[in-house]
Write a protein that binds this DNA or RNA. Structure first.
Lengths: 162, 162
DNA sequence: TGACAATAAATGACGTGTCATCTATTATTA
DNA sequence: TAATAATAGATGACACGTCATTTATTGTCA
């Protein structure tokens, strides 16, 4: 009776703890850049896919579900993102990075690489790949799978088999 | 050039997605009980270790760092927790579940088991154990390790070796 | 074309998370 | 013992996350 907990219970808390701890580390790395992890995710997506609507952005974000109106609102205030109404269909907004936003992106890449270096000091590439396969299988069934697939972080039934 | 992302980058987002998705599932399971995932964690800890101070509770919580004043504040309002000043040293508070809190605990255990059942439909015990070993290694170096060890979810240098 | 359905985004409400600061109480020590 | 340090908890401030509702615009179809 070495371990009185179910592995599933452990797993649940270890995922929670990993997210919290990872977020804290990443947040610290981003601090001097003046952006939060959520804002950094938006900037990274816009850098690659802009211009796009709020709806399209929301369909790619992992950090939050629903439409990221308020997150973008804060970024507009920060002069990181430009938000204008679409001409053809004014229900949509057109989101684009400002030059400040683009500048931040370069710094964010550096912070991300520091983060990845920390992870790679703890794990081998094979271990990360294995962990990713395991996590992917759970996420493939979730509403987030669409977002993850769009971002290229998981793939429809490949590498997820038992 | 099958995959242009680093495994570490994937890992970061898959952890984030797993936490978000897991939290949403768990939140739904808890909905009819009328507690949130954070409140459920407090109730589970108090059930096992009460009475305890806010500081002691904070040293066991995974869901948030720092002292959970406000989380407990809301639970006092909900009549789930009783909070009284310690007689010997009135800097401390003494936290204890109310009978309502104890009732909720039984329902929370059921919800948790539903959650674990979902996980166990996706994963074998071995896979969960493997995933837990991998996650533990990262967390053992973190400030949360103390909390996780107190809870019994990780152990000092056992099962965490490469 | 004019009422109505559908859609995108904004907003309200609530509960976290995190960090810094404040307050109250107890411990320390000059 | 009186000033000071240390400690626990409360609180202010800010940024999320999540869900439900509202608003503005466009589509549709009778």
């Amino acid at each position: 009776m070495e371990n009185k907990f179910k592995e599933a219970e452990k797993f649940r808390y270890l995922i929670l703890a990993s997210q919290r701890q990872g977020n804290r580390i990443y947040k610290d790395l981003l601090f001097e850049i003046g952006v939060t992890p959520s804002k950094a995710e938006v900037i990274s997506i816009l850098m690659k896919y802009q211009p796009m609507s709020l709806k399209e952005l929301g369909a790619m974000l992992i950090c939050e579900s629903g439409s990221p109106s308020r997150l973008v609102e804060r970024m507009v205030k920060d002069k990181l993102v430009e938000r204008v109404k679409e001409k053809n269909d004014s229900r949509f907004v057109r989101l684009q990075l400002t030059s400040l936003g683009i500048d931040k992106y370069k710094l964010i890449v550096k912070a991300e690489n520091q983060m990845y270096k920390i992870l790679e000091e703890v794990y081998t590439e094979d271990e990360l790949q294995l962990a990713n396969q395991v996590l992917s299988r759970f996420l493939l069934e979730s509403p987030l799978s669409s977002n993850l697939i769009k971002r290229g972080y998981i793939h429809k039934s490949r590498d997820n088999m038992k």
